[in-house]
Design a protein around this nucleic acid. Structure first.
Lengths: 203, 203
DNA sequence: CCACAACTTGCGTGACACGCATATAGTGCG
DNA sequence: CGCACTATATGCGTGTCACGCAAGTTGTGG
């Protein structure tokens, strides 16, 4: 995360990755959900200040490039949960972590809408989202004393959390909906996250 | 679903769609997760008995073709839930419906493994899976007296169910796991599906 | 039986993903 | 500091792919 924790190469690499991601998302938004085919790889690369070939060194499809920022963000949800106080109940910790991660700053309405209404992008975004479930499940397991490899609870809960975030996002950008994202997230997550895993034997 | 409920054209169309889907999945399995690039469109089309151009009239990417069967199956989860007795509690109805749909017959281990371990296919499969959440949410809403457009509960629960099925699938094909799929599905679903929506005022 | 609609197919085109070879920039050691 | 070494950037060539277009073919309804 912190630039000054990596060597120069890693920082440059991260910078160009973000540059390409930003350029790709921006151009996609400009063309709208029905004009994805008009976003040429050459345009993305030029806008990011690299060659087309370099673009392909970072991403192997336009969808991957456009969704890169979202992917990077959601990848850190596990770490965010681990930073919550250990004595907090599971549901409160998850809700707090998710709200912290997804409302600072608020997501870009145009970008989210673009991705969710374009089949090709939706698949890629879902995949990126799903990749984040692993670390999240580990964090949940660590917090509840369960085993992400053996027990179903942490992995299933992580998947449910991811689903709730996704539904909350869709609900948030539904026209005529004025509630802040944090409020919707809280409602959605409280539907699926228990305060503690089942079959817990209290001391 | 029933062939004899559509006219000849629709049946032919459905037949070729399935033929292409089967051929695509079979060829993909033959090449394995790392040989996806070797599965040529021409091969799929030939194996299905159509021209390459016709293949593209049905699917706009190899991933879509390979995942077509899974997509068609999961698309009917909402309808399956509606066929459960109306007085059954939500959790039992959902569990019974999902088990009925996903264990008759048991999924193809090779196909599932292939899809889940290939990034490009995984995204497409997730998208197909997510498409099924809409009808499922409607069915849940109808059963619980909630509104899939306004309330978060039915949509979030549908997403959680989809996530649980997905996690159960991954767990099922983990090496050294001998439990039947139905058992795993039951455990996974019972983590996230309540017997009734929250804030329910009992009579 | 005939006009119409849906579907299939072959061809041509623009774009894309990637292997390979080369040039350049960052790194670590003596 | 300078030098070998590795990682990254770029240009070029290639094989595929998705799709528009314009026939030809098959199913549908009057």
């Amino acid at each position: 995360m912190n630039d000054d924790a990596m060597d120069l190469r890693a920082r440059n690499r991260q910078a160009t990755r973000e540059a390409i991601g930003h350029a790709a998302l921006r151009l996609a938004i400009e063309q709208g959900p029905n004009g994805l085919a008009l976003v040429r790889v050459h345009d993305i690369a030029t806008a990011a200040g690299v060659s087309s070939r370099t673009y392909n060194n970072y991403f192997s499809s336009r969808a991957e490039a456009i969704c890169a920022l979202q992917a990077d963000q959601s990848r850190s949800v596990g770490e965010t949960l681990r930073s919550r106080p250990a004595d907090e109940p599971l549901d409160q910790a998850v809700i707090a972590a998710v709200i912290e991660l997804y409302t600072n700053p608020e997501p870009d309405r145009a970008g989210l809408s673009m991705i969710m209404s374009t089949p090709e992008l939706e698949g890629e975004a879902l995949r990126a989202f799903t990749m984040a479930e692993g670390p999240l499940a580990e964090a949940i397991a660590a917090r509840t004393g369960t085993d992400a490899g053996r027990d179903l609870f942490p992995t299933v809960t992580a998947a449910a959390v991811a689903g709730a975030i996704r539904v909350a996002g869709r609900h948030w950008l539904t026209p005529g909906n004025t509630a802040p994202f944090a409020t919707i997230l809280r409602s959605a997550l409280s539907c699926v996250v228990p305060a503690a895993p089942p079959n817990q034997t209290p001391p």
